[in-house]
Amino acid sequence: MPEGSASLQLAVGDRVVYPNQGVCRVSAIDVKEVAGQKLTFVTMRREEDGAVVMVPEGKVLAIGVRKVASAE
């Protein structure tokens, strides 16, 4: 991610809310080559049905992904 860009610090195992998809758990953060460029992807699995969603790390905030609020 370019320096100075806002990002959401995620780790494998974090629970997040993905708008219009529901609650997901981060299952992987991997670098993949797409069209000759190396990009970091956040892979999330929906808790409702296990569907897998992959989002480029740089788009996580723009999409509206946020961490699940704690009970505290």
Rank of each mutant, 00 (worst) to 15 (best):
F41V: 12
Q21M: 15
G22T: 05
R25F: 11
Y18M: 14
N20C: 01
V34K: 04
V42M: 02
K59Y: 14
V52T: 09
E33W: 13
K67M: 12
E3Y: 03
I63W: 05
L39A: 06
A35D: 14
P2S: 12
V12N: 01
Y18I: 14
E72T: 10
L61Y: 08
A51Q: 10
G58K: 14
Q21P: 01
V23K: 03
R46Q: 03
M1L: 12
L10Q: 00
E48I: 13
T40I: 13
R46M: 04
G50V: 03
V65S: 05
G22Q: 05
V16G: 01
V68I: 14
V17I: 14
E47T: 03
A28Y: 05
S27D: 12
L10Y: 04
L39M: 13
A6D: 10
T40G: 04
N20Y: 07
T40F: 07
E33M: 12
V12I: 10
D49A: 02
A69W: 04
V26G: 00
K32P: 01
E33Q: 07
V68T: 07
E57S: 15
K32H: 12
G4S: 13
V34I: 11
A11D: 05
A71Y: 09
V65E: 04
G4D: 10
V16H: 01
A35E: 12
V26C: 00
L61Q: 14
V17M: 13
E57N: 06
M54D: 04
V31H: 06
G13C: 00
A28P: 00
V23S: 03
G36Q: 02
A6L: 11
D14S: 03
V55P: 01
V55E: 06
R25I: 15
V65Q: 04
G58P: 07
G22R: 03
V52A: 06
M44L: 14
R46E: 02
E47S: 02
L10W: 04
M44P: 00
T40S: 08
F41P: 00
A28M: 06
G4W: 08
V55T: 03
D14G: 00
S7D: 10
D30T: 14
V23M: 09
S5R: 10
R45L: 15
G58M: 09
P19H: 06
G58E: 15
V52M: 11
V31N: 04
D30I: 14
E48Y: 12
G58Q: 11
R15K: 07
A62F: 06
V60F: 15
C24A: 03
D30R: 08
G36S: 03
P2M: 10
I29L: 06
F41I: 14
L39C: 01
P19I: 04
L39V: 15
P56S: 11
V60A: 14
L10G: 01
V42C: 00
A71P: 12
